[in-house]
């Protein structure tokens, strides 16, 4: 019950709030669903995959549902699938 111990806890406890979250997946179409509610536009990284050629993938839009960013629309060329990573602040949907 030492106050001093409590003070030391107070000082050493990191007051963590709003940590950045990362979600990821693989998509074969043009619609990514994060399964996550980001409070601001997340950063999206795309890696197009194909056995041959030089596939490309770009983000067309970051899409909102009920005010939160919950997915993205992408455009691909020559890719059989696209690996994606979204990073931002939010909570699970």
């Amino acid at each position: 019950m030492s106050v001093r111990n409590e003070m030391e806890r107070l000082i050493t406890t990191a007051l963590h709030c709003n940590p950045k979250q990362m979600v990821y997946g693989t998509v074969t179409g043009t619609t990514i669903t994060f399964g996550y509610k980001f409070v601001s536009a997340p950063i999206i990284l795309l890696t197009p995959l194909a056995a041959t050629g030089t596939p490309t993938a770009t983000v067309v839009s970051k899409d909102k549902t009920d005010g939160y960013y919950t997915g993205a629309t992408i455009a691909t060329a020559g890719a059989t699938s696209v690996d994606w990573i979204a990073i931002g602040t939010g909570i699970s949907a």
Binding site: A14, H16, C17, N18, T89
Partner: peptide, 20 residues
């Protein structure tokens, strides 16, 4: 004394330091 936060606005850090 050193303390760390994540995601707290810059302007509010000084108030937390004064509290401690």
């Amino acid at each position: 004394a050193y303390m760390s936060t994540i995601g707290v606005d810059h302007a509010k850090l000084i108030n937390m330091a004064q509290d401690v």
